[in-house]
Simulated assay, not measured.
Amino acid sequence: MAALTTGKDNTKVPTKQRPAVYIRRSRADDPEYGFPDEFIELCEEHFDVLYEKNITGNPELGKRVVGAYNRGPSMPISIDELWKFPNLKIVVCSGIGWDHIDVRGLNAHGIKVANNPGVSSNAVADFGITLMLASARRLLEGVPVAMGPKQCQKFNVNWLGNDVSFASLGIVGMGDIGSKVAKRAKAFDMKIYYHNRNRKPEEEESSVGAIYCPTLADLLPRCDYVMITCPLTSETEGMFGENEFKLMKPSATIVNVARGEIIDQEALYNALKNKTIKAAALDVTYPEPLPRDHPLLTLPNIIIAPHMASATAETRKRMLPPLVETVLAVVEGRPLTNEVIL
């Protein structure tokens, strides 16, 4: 798998062997989690590409791997498999999330971990607003009335949703995604509150009219809508439980475009069933997908999407070049701006 160049007689001749990157599977081998051809072509401009099937057939090839790419809910290489990749320098997550990666375990073996921040933020923010609007306006309930197999003789003009404009929104996690949600919410004339580990500079707050709340207890009682955009960490896991739902307005809706584990799903089920809060709109759950007998699926006041917030053709295309650039930076000894530091 050495790179080829064109010789004087127009024949292909091998050049110095290039470093390799490891991709568990291509889309052809795994339509759900495999990497697309466009990404593999980008990688091949700089690296040889090795797949799981290559390493299984010839473990010696693992010595050539300097970078590994992750896509999906599991690590591309388990800690127990690292012996196959003695020269591995970095594992790169295709998206912003890295909660499924054993960062400390890899770091202990001298392997860096990087994510792909920023590129998907607009798409995720768009989808957070989409979920909020769909829930507020009862869109999923309304569509079957107009499109269902049972003929509807007339529409019920007293069947109402709620305004988003001029309502209050609480953003939990004011990073890149949360900030973009706030910009969109400002266009709806929403009153914006936010909770974050660190307060944002006054200039950033004033640009969207955001009000800082140092605790969830300060934020939750004020908000008609609460949107979770923070990463999943040991501090945020289970952040929303029974007590938090009791702090929210009975008319409030919770939206989650972050990670499912941030919400205690049993507590959410009880809060929705008992009308402690009005509704929920989720892009993420645990597990994914939920089993068909999961209690949340029995409720009429919840929307669950299939973890699709970043799933636009444009965003996925923009996500590809930074992945290649990250491994190149490590190989060339350049500093990383997207390394995951715990």
Rank of each mutant, 00 (worst) to 15 (best):
68 A>K: 00
301 N>R: 01
289 P>G: 08
18 R>P: 10
81 E>G: 05
156 N>W: 06
295 P>Q: 09
275 K>L: 10
111 I>H: 05
169 L>S: 06
325 E>G: 10
258 A>R: 03
102 D>L: 04
12 K>D: 05
2 A>E: 14
29 D>V: 01
78 S>D: 15
233 T>Y: 05
323 L>N: 14
131 L>H: 04
124 V>R: 05
257 V>K: 01
187 A>H: 11
52 E>R: 13
1 M>L: 13
168 S>M: 06
330 V>L: 01
81 E>W: 05
104 R>E: 15
175 G>D: 09
244 E>N: 11
313 A>Y: 13
32 E>W: 10
100 H>N: 15
169 L>M: 13
335 P>L: 06
132 M>A: 07
267 A>D: 11
149 P>H: 06
31 P>N: 03
4 L>Y: 13
307 H>M: 08
6 T>V: 02
333 G>C: 04
16 K>D: 14
180 K>E: 14
35 F>I: 03
187 A>N: 13
31 P>L: 02
106 L>Q: 13
269 Y>P: 07
237 E>W: 08
333 G>V: 05
283 D>F: 01
92 V>T: 09
135 S>L: 08
259 R>H: 11
101 I>G: 05
262 I>L: 03
325 E>N: 12
19 P>K: 04
121 S>K: 06
231 P>W: 04
212 Y>H: 11
98 W>T: 15
263 I>G: 06
147 M>H: 13
59 P>V: 03
101 I>K: 08
167 A>T: 04
208 V>A: 00
82 L>Y: 02
90 I>S: 05
297 L>K: 05
206 S>L: 13
49 V>Y: 10
161 G>E: 09
325 E>I: 09
143 V>S: 12
40 I>Q: 03
157 V>I: 15
306 P>N: 06
281 A>I: 05
181 V>C: 00
24 R>C: 13
19 P>E: 11
71 R>V: 12
161 G>R: 06
191 K>T: 15
207 S>K: 10
192 I>T: 04
230 C>N: 08
83 W>F: 14
225 Y>R: 07
56 T>S: 01
278 K>Q: 13
134 A>Q: 09
127 F>P: 10
29 D>S: 14
210 A>K: 00
27 R>D: 14
197 R>M: 04
133 L>N: 11
81 E>S: 13
33 Y>C: 07
192 I>Y: 07
321 P>G: 03
297 L>E: 08
24 R>E: 14
268 L>Y: 03
23 I>H: 06
148 G>Y: 03
205 E>R: 00
233 T>P: 04
41 E>Y: 12
138 R>T: 12
66 V>E: 12
40 I>W: 08
226 V>Q: 04
333 G>T: 07
61 L>K: 05
27 R>L: 12
298 T>E: 15
56 T>W: 01
294 H>M: 10
257 V>C: 04
100 H>Q: 15
34 G>S: 03
180 K>F: 00
68 A>T: 03
331 V>D: 14
135 S>F: 01
305 A>H: 06
223 C>D: 11
40 I>E: 10
330 V>P: 06
334 R>V: 02
25 R>V: 02
251 S>D: 12
267 A>F: 05
172 V>P: 03
148 G>K: 02
228 I>W: 02
264 D>S: 03
92 V>A: 09
287 P>Y: 09
338 N>H: 10
273 K>Y: 15
309 A>P: 08
315 T>Y: 00
57 G>K: 00
58 N>H: 10
215 T>R: 02
146 A>D: 12
57 G>W: 00
